[in-house]
């Protein structure tokens, strides 16, 4: 359930010189987080909006759970797909609770069930229901609005989520925390997510798989690490900055490259880093503290040691198998 399949999908807008989307085929597995990445005008948003039929394809077919989406009543289809957009699109005249209740109400849920769902979702996105239920969107920060937008999209418990540059208009610090939040939620909820962005860092950070698009076509569909290490062509290479060693380090996890702690290892006041953190952050700690090595912690217990040499020897690695295991954790 929640599998999305695009078969030779095209979209030609009337009067446009070339198709916005050209012959795109894509198989999105259930529970995977797939990011559509590309420069503006590459067709990524058009592709996304064909999945909930805000645009109708001019060619090809889209299947969800094997069923052609054209066979499903359009409002029913959309009520079953979570949709989050950049400007949040929260209804300014409705409270947070009313906004979250929109889809459950369309689905005809009972009042009590809706109320319970609102509280559950607000807790999920870390906004205390007692405090935030009755606020209006204008009384929230940009980050909070985007969280509510997310809660609203999750309200009907959809299998599929479409997210159109949801964090695009948000300052860098808040964006990072929203991305963390998104990863946490996805670990918990396992939705099938299609997520549009033009931010490479965001794509690398969030995606199980990235779809790189250019001029309406899919150029590459692969894991973040593969895309960085084996870009399909010069366009992808330049787009993702495949030469950027530091960027590559951000996809490598500390416990993949550390040395096991010797039995007699003494902590000795070395700076510490979490086992599931990435090498980019580890490098940053080493440089900042001037330490020779870092103690790797898991559940507050030292489990390993990481040195600058460990990082250097892995920076150029193409050891995909090892790395992908790391990324999947």
């Amino acid at each position: 359930m929640g599998n999305i399949e695009l078969i030779n999908v095209s979209k030609q807008f009337p009067g446009a010189p070339r198709p916005a989307v050209r012959d795109c085929s894509l198989d999105v597995e259930q529970g995977s987080f797939v990011v559509l990445l590309g420069p503006s005008g590459c067709g990524k948003t058009t592709l996304l909006k064909m999945v909930n039929r805000l645009y109708e394809p001019t060619g090809g077919q889209i299947l969800i759970n094997g069923a052609d989406i054209r066979e499903i009543k359009v409002t029913t289809l959309r009520q079953r797909i979570g949709y989050v957009i950049q400007q949040t699109g929260l209804f300014p005249h409705m409270t947070v609770a009313q906004n979250v209740a929109v889809v459950p109400r369309l689905l005809g849920w009972e009042r009590d069930r809706i109320d319970a769902r609102i509280d559950e979702l607000l807790r999920l996105i870390k906004l205390a229901p007692e405090e935030y239920r009755n606020r209006y969107p204008s009384q929230l920060s940009g980050g909070q609005q985007q969280r509510v937008g997310l809660a609203r999209a999750l309200a009907g418990d959809p299998e599929v989520m479409l997210m159109d540059e949801p964090f695009g208009a948000i300052d860098a610090i808040t964006r990072t925390s929203l991305q963390d939040e998104m990863l946490r939620l996805q670990r918990q909820l396992k939705k099938t997510i299609l997520f549009v962005t033009h931010d490479v860092e965001e794509a690398l950070r969030l995606a199980d798989k990235i779809v790189v698009m250019d001029f309406g076509s899919i150029v590459q569909y692969d894991t973040p690490f593969h895309i960085l290490t084996n870009p399909a062509n010069a366009f992808v290479h330049n787009l993702v900055g495949a030469d950027d060693t530091v960027r590559r380090l951000s996809l490598l996890q500390v416990d993949m490259v550390m040395s096991r702690t010797p039995a007699d290892y003494a902590h000795n006041g070395h700076p510490t880093i979490a086992a599931n953190d990435n090498l980019r952050n580890a490098l940053s700690v080493l440089l900042r503290t001037g330490a020779v090595s870092l103690t790797v912690l898991q559940d507050a217990q030292p489990v390993g040691v990481l040195t600058l040499d460990d990082i250097r020897s892995n920076a150029g690695t193409n050891n995909v198998a090892a790395i992908e295991k790391g990324h999947a954790v």
């Binding site: 805000l54 009520q79 957009i85 699109g89 929260l90 300014p92 889809v103 369309l106």
Partner: peptide, 10 residues
């Protein structure tokens, strides 16, 4: 964006 959200939510 508000209109699109309304349509997009069904």
């Amino acid at each position: 964006a508000v209109r699109e959200a309304a349509r997009g939510m069904g």
